[in-house]
Design a protein around this nucleic acid. Structure first.
Lengths: 211, 211
DNA sequence: TCCTGTGAATTAGTTCACAGCG
DNA sequence: CGCTGTGAACTAATTCACAGGA
């Protein structure tokens, strides 16, 4: 049922399939084929079937997949049957965008606190949230029962903040700082580097004509 | 020199190496070994050497790589020896964060225009930028000589906007909308899906104990 | 017949290991 | 010696192709 190790690329695609499954559900479809999902997700039907097969077989031959059932199963696989309490470390513009981002709340990720170092930001309100002093990070993690931290700081303080987060027992970090965080093996880190994304585009532009 | 096809994963790592190379340069180092770069970037020395070897051999055996020379070469490979004119399509909070993001400007990506559909946003100013009407998208792309578009809209209008961008001749799109854009083969698209990143974290949390 | 589930084949990507140059 | 550059070996991921159930 749960294989030892599933590729990160597979997990990402499952999340994407779930998004399109919900779209199909909204349109009232009750079954969907691997081919139809693949088309929406930009992959192949074999890839969809293989990805799903790591977790069991939920399709009906000749028919496809039951839309609500597969959706429920994907949510279960992805751990989306419950809500998560998220802390934003850093209160810059990007943090502000993430705090309001409907896509997080819709998937069960609730931003419950924001901290920053800048006295000018501390105490200001973001909707229902109040920006707190980063000095109180440890207290906040405990009091708010934070499970996931999103690091949205410059590169320099990121490692030290990660160390403090890990010390409080946080085991999941989404890192937007352009550093490779050193953390114990039990801590899950996913890195997002927006500049790198643009740089891969400029690479592609640069090299396109040369083929 | 420029192989037919270099893996996306390699290009991403090159961008990351460049970031750490600049750090080494700031610290006054004049040479760096593949091992030192690997440590910072969270990979192996063999991986670093292999990645670089796709584009030539710039190291000195027994010594390592010349920091400024390798930096210049990586910038050249990644197409970062010039500046790019970027259009933001969508003027939400995330777009606002991207418009101000120092990491883009530092790498040569200049946001030269922002468009939105919402009359309440059109005409408002973001620093030196004025939010323009999305109806004028085609005119703006031409007048501002836009080369890269960043799509920061909800899912629904994204494909239609991509079609319009492609029609104007844009060949590079960074897409934050949770859809798989259908574009001609000459157009480069990179997708960023922030919710998917959190979902891979929740997957990891869900499955960690089960090993 | 249609579409899934899955071994097998293939392709892609990473790591090894060592020859060779500074 | 030390560290690069690179074929060879290995591992991972994707695609093929088809048996088999609805």
């Amino acid at each position: 049922m749960h294989p030892r190790k599933v590729a990160d690329s597979t997990v990402r695609r499952l999340a994407i399939y779930l998004r399109f499954l919900e779209e199909f559900a909204d349109q009232g479809a009750d079954t969907v084929s691997s081919g139809a999902l693949a088309q929406r997700a930009g992959t192949t039907s074999a890839q969809v079937r293989k990805d799903l097969s790591f977790f069991g077989s939920f399709g009906k031959r000749g028919l496809g997949y039951d839309v609500p059932a597969l959706g429920a199963r994907l949510r279960q696989i992805l751990g989306l049957t419950r809500r998560y309490r998220v802390l934003l470390v850093g209160a810059g513009r990007l943090a502000g965008a993430l705090a309001q981002y409907a896509g997080f709340a819709a998937r069960g990720f609730d931003v419950v606190a924001v901290v920053d170092r800048d006295p000018a930001k501390i105490g200001t309100c973001w909707g229902a949230l109040r920006v707190d002093d980063v000095d109180r990070l440890e207290k906040i993690v405990v009091a708010e029962r934070v499970e996931i931290a999103i690091l949205v700081t410059p590169a320099e303080p990121a490692q030290q903040l990660a160390d403090r987060l890990v010390a409080t027992g946080i085991t999941a970090i989404l890192n937007f700082a352009p550093v490779q965080l050193q953390v114990p093996g039990v801590v899950e880190v996913k890195n997002v580097n927006l500049a790198v994304e643009l740089e891969t585009l400029s690479y592609a532009l640069q090299h396109r004509e040369e083929n």
